[in-house]
Amino acid sequence: MDILSSIIMGIIEGLTEFLPVSSTGHMILTADLLGLNTENDTVKTFEVIVQLGAVMAVVVLYWRRFLSLFDFRRRTSSQPRLNLLHIILAMIPAGLIGVLFRDVIKQYLFGPETVLYSLVIGGLLMIAAEKFHPPIKSQTIDDITYKQAFTIGLFQVLALWPGFSRSGSTMSGGLFARVSHTAAAEFTFLVSVPVMLGASGIDMIKSMDHLSMSDFPVFAAGFITAFIVGMLAIKTFLGLLKRLSLTSFAIYRFVLAAVFFFIIL
C-alpha cells in the first residue's frame, strides 16, 4: 500500500462506517478497484487500524455519554436512563455468533460477490422496516428499553455478513422494535465501539507479527483520515435522518451493487 491508497481507504471507511451502506462492503470493493490484495497480511492489518480511527470518532463525540453509562446511581425522570446493561444486551447476540463462527465468516463471506448480494438483501430489509414497522414509542436514546436493546442486538448479527451494514441492520431492528431513526442511530454508534474494539483487538493480536515501522506512515494516514472523516460523517448522518428515510439509502445500495456487478463480475 502507499499513502494515497491509505487516504482513499480512510475516507471510504470514515464516510461509510456509520451510514447504513456497509463500510466493510465498501472497503472490500474499493480495495478491489485499487488493486489491493485483501489476503495480504499488511492490507488486513491496515483495515483493522483504519477501522479503529472511525471508532475513535465515536469515542470523542460521545465521551460524556460513555461516562454516564457507568453511573449506576438512582436516576430521576429528568436524568439519562440508558446504562451499561443496554449496551451489553445489544452486544451479546453478535458477540457470541462472531466468536463462534469468526473463521467461517472470514472464509466464506468476505469477498466482492458476497458483498453485492448482501447490499441488495440489506437494502430490502431497510425498505421493509420503513414500510411495515409499528408505531414508534421510543423517541430518544434514553427511552430505549432493555427488550428493545436486545432486539436491536439480534438484528446486529446480520452485520457479520459484510455488506449488510451494522447501522442498516440495527436501525431496521430499531424501527421494528418501535425505536425512532435518530435514537436507533445513536444507540448503534455507542454499541459499535465495544463491538468494533473487541473484533479489532482479536485481529490486531493475530496481526502483530506483520507490523513493522516501515508501515507506520501508511497506517497513520489511514487512521487519521478515517477519524476526521468519521466525525464529520456522524454529524452529517444525524442531520440527514431528519430528511431522508432508510429507503433512500437502500436505493443507493441497489445502484452500488448494480454498478459493481458489471465492474467486478
Results as ranks from 00 to 15, higher is better:
Leu246Ile: 07
Ala258Trp: 04
Leu34Ser: 01
Phe254Met: 09
Arg75Ala: 13
Leu119Asn: 01
Leu36Ile: 15
Met56Leu: 15
Gly168Phe: 05
Ser138Gly: 10
Leu61Ser: 13
Ser207Met: 08
Ile8Tyr: 06
Leu61Arg: 06
His26Val: 00
Val259Gln: 08
Ile97Thr: 12
Phe237Ala: 03
Thr140Cys: 02
Lys44Tyr: 03
Asp103Phe: 02
Ile105Leu: 11
Ile92Pro: 11
Thr182Gly: 11
Val259His: 01
Asp71Ala: 10
Val120Phe: 05
Tyr146Glu: 09
Gln107Glu: 14
Glu113Tyr: 08
Pro194Met: 09
Ser172Leu: 12
Leu256Gly: 00
Ile11Lys: 00
Tyr108His: 12
Gly53Pro: 04
Met231Ser: 07
Gly163Lys: 07
Arg73Thr: 14
Leu175Val: 13
Glu130Trp: 04
Pro217Met: 06
Gly53Tyr: 08
Leu160Cys: 11
Val179Ser: 03
Lys235Ala: 11
His26Asp: 02
Asn40Ser: 10
Trp63Arg: 15
Met196Arg: 11
Ile251Met: 07
Val60Asp: 00
Pro134Phe: 06
Ala184Tyr: 01
His210Asp: 12
Leu246Tyr: 02
Ser245Trp: 03
Leu244Ile: 15
Thr236Ile: 13
Ile144Asp: 05
Arg178Tyr: 05
Gly35Trp: 04
Ile251Phe: 11
Phe189Asp: 09
His210Gln: 11
Gly153Ile: 15
Pro80Met: 06
Gly174Phe: 02
Ala94Glu: 03
Ile121Asp: 05
Val259Arg: 04
His210Asn: 13
Leu34Ile: 14
Asn37Leu: 03
Ile224Gly: 02
Thr16Lys: 02
Ala221Pro: 03
Val104Gly: 02
Leu85Val: 15
Phe223Met: 08
Trp63Thr: 15
Gly122Ile: 04
Asp209Met: 08
Ile3Asp: 07
Ala90Met: 02
Ser78Ile: 15
Phe101Asp: 09
Val259Glu: 04
Leu69Ala: 01
Lys242Val: 02
Lys106Gln: 13
Gly10Ile: 07
Phe150Tyr: 10
Thr38Gly: 04
Phe189Ala: 12
Tyr117Cys: 08
His26Thr: 07
Ala31Asp: 12
Lys242Arg: 13
Gly95Cys: 06
Gly14Thr: 06
Val255His: 01
Ile88Ala: 14
Glu39Ala: 15
Met9Gln: 10
Ile28Trp: 01
Thr188Leu: 10
Ser245Pro: 07
Ile11Glu: 04
Phe254Gly: 03
Leu160Asp: 04
Phe260Tyr: 07
Pro134Lys: 13
Val104Met: 11
Ser212Leu: 01
Tyr252Thr: 12
